[in-house]
Simulated scan of single mutants.
Amino acid sequence: MPIDQNGDTTIEGVSLRSLPKVSLHDHLDGGLRPATIIELADAAGVAVPERDAAALGDWFARQADSGSLVEYLKTFDLTIAVMQTRAGLTRVAREFVEDLVADGVVYGEVRWAPEQHVAGGLSLDEAVAAVQDGIEQAEDAAASAGHDIRVGQLISAMRHTDRSLQIAKLAVSWRDRGAVGFDIAGPEDGFPPARLREAFDYLAGQFFPATVHAGEAAGLDSIRSALLDGRALRLGHGVRIAEDVDVVGEDGDEVQVRFGDLARWVRDREIPLELSPSSNLQTGAIAAWGTTVADHPFDLLYQLGFAVTVNVDNRTMSRTSLTRELALLAETFDYGLDDLEAFQLNAAAGAFLPIEEREELIDIIAAGFGR
């Protein structure tokens, strides 16, 4: 089951790229086309390490493959620097959605932190409007070409700054105008969700959903704080929940495990895990288990009944796509179409959409997988 140069593969006679997909964890500033970065950098007077688009793509992948989330995050200095104008934000958002369409995505949530995009003079509100304009342009173009896609914004606050309440209010103000949820991003270790409790209290009072980066660079305490302080409905990555699952033996093909209270709660409440296999390798999030996709606890969590979803995190840094992430998992764990459909159904069920629209999305996935 070889993966071709575009990250695609065929399973049971079906191209993975052609299947309907749901993308829940995808950063706007981590999904720029290298050629676009060069053009925007030239216009803004920003230096780039490589002048050729392919070479720049190689540079991102090389820099991101550090085994450290802190080092991984440094690659965003360049992408954020070229996203400081209305035109730049609109173009990046439009191309972002175009690339989702090319990847077979039918519903996506794009997360980004507006507070990082006001150095050029834009207000927070103007920045969100610019991104929404780009999203809608691409949605309309896709519809004209016969591909229906909907993309919602996840407005993120940086967890190491002191603007979380302001950003939470910004997100709620864009409810029904493009924003579907809230997130916190940036350095996880040392900056627990409890630090942003006031913002999460406000969001809870507004019944506005939140997903929280947790269980990536920090462990179980981070996940616990995301659930208790952040009222997280999903866990951004959340891969280290596997630290609360002890494998105590094997009985034939079955693994015998002992659940901690936290892991059991996450599994039994079907709290979606926004897993990103390639990114989790690059940032060292799965270092406790190993350094290859085969070492990722994805399959363990899936087999144990956790609501696992598959995501790209940052397409540029990981030089990946949702199709490629699914292909890697299928190749590594011998998954078939039923398994890949289950991941999409988990994502659809966890989408920040009204129940009626989630049910429609589930029908689209079932039809696309031939059910």
Results as ranks from 00 to 15, higher is better:
Gln116Met: 14
Lys21Ser: 04
Arg94Phe: 06
Ala102Gly: 15
Trp174Ile: 04
Gln166Asn: 06
Asp299Met: 06
Arg175Tyr: 00
Ser225His: 08
Val48Leu: 02
Leu78Arg: 12
Ala141Gln: 11
Arg315Asn: 01
Thr320Tyr: 02
Thr283Pro: 05
Phe298Ser: 06
Pro20Val: 14
Ser321Val: 09
Asp162Val: 09
Arg224Gln: 11
Leu235Arg: 10
Ser68Glu: 11
Leu233Thr: 13
Leu165Cys: 08
Glu356Phe: 01
Val82Tyr: 04
Asp299Leu: 01
Phe298Ile: 15
Pro192Gln: 12
Asp125Cys: 06
Arg17Cys: 05
Ile3Met: 09
Asp339Gln: 14
Leu273Ala: 03
Met317Val: 13
Phe259Tyr: 13
Ala204Asn: 15
Gly120His: 08
Leu69Asn: 09
Thr283Lys: 04
Ser68Lys: 12
Ser164Asn: 11
Glu50Ile: 07
Val70Glu: 10
Asp140Ile: 15
Glu274Ile: 12
Arg86Ser: 02
Glu216Ile: 09
Arg269Pro: 00
Asp77Cys: 01
His237Ala: 06
Asp29Pro: 01
Leu228Ile: 15
Gly370Cys: 11
Tyr302Trp: 08
Leu165His: 02
Glu243Leu: 14
Gly215Thr: 13
Leu196Ser: 10
Arg258Gln: 11
Arg324Lys: 11
Ser318Gln: 05
Val257Lys: 13
Phe182Pro: 08
Pro354Leu: 10
Glu243Asp: 15
Ala179Pro: 07
Pro2Leu: 11
Trp59Pro: 04
Gly336Glu: 07
Leu40Pro: 00
Arg159Thr: 06
Arg197Phe: 05
Ala294Gly: 05
Gln153Met: 12
Trp289Ile: 12
Ala142Leu: 13
Arg17Val: 10
Glu12Met: 03
Gly7Thr: 01
Lys169Asp: 09
Ala204Gly: 15
Val118Arg: 04
Leu326Glu: 05
Arg163Cys: 04
Gly88Met: 03
Pro192Met: 11
Ser18Glu: 12
Leu281Pro: 01
Tyr302Lys: 07
Arg163Ala: 06
Glu50Asp: 07
Arg111Trp: 07
Leu19His: 02
Val128Cys: 07
Glu243Gln: 14
Val101Gln: 03
Leu19Asn: 03
Ile286Cys: 01
Ile37Ala: 00
Gly181Cys: 14
Lys74Gln: 10
Ile286Gly: 00
Glu341Leu: 13
Leu19Ala: 04
Leu78Ser: 12
Glu331Val: 11
Glu198Trp: 11
Thr323Val: 15
Thr316Phe: 03
Gly30Leu: 06
Glu12His: 00
Val131Ser: 01
Ser123Ile: 13
Ile3Trp: 00
Val248Pro: 08
Pro297Gly: 06
Arg197Tyr: 03
Val172Tyr: 02
Pro192Asn: 08
Ile155Glu: 05
Ser23Leu: 15
Ser23Ile: 06
Pro354Gly: 05
Gly368Leu: 14
Ser123Pro: 10
Leu328Asn: 09
Arg177Ser: 11
His237Lys: 10
Val310Tyr: 00
Leu32Ile: 06
Gly104Asp: 01
Gly88Asn: 04
Arg371Met: 03
Ser68Arg: 14
Glu341Thr: 12
Ala226Ser: 09
Asp268Thr: 01
Ala113Asn: 06
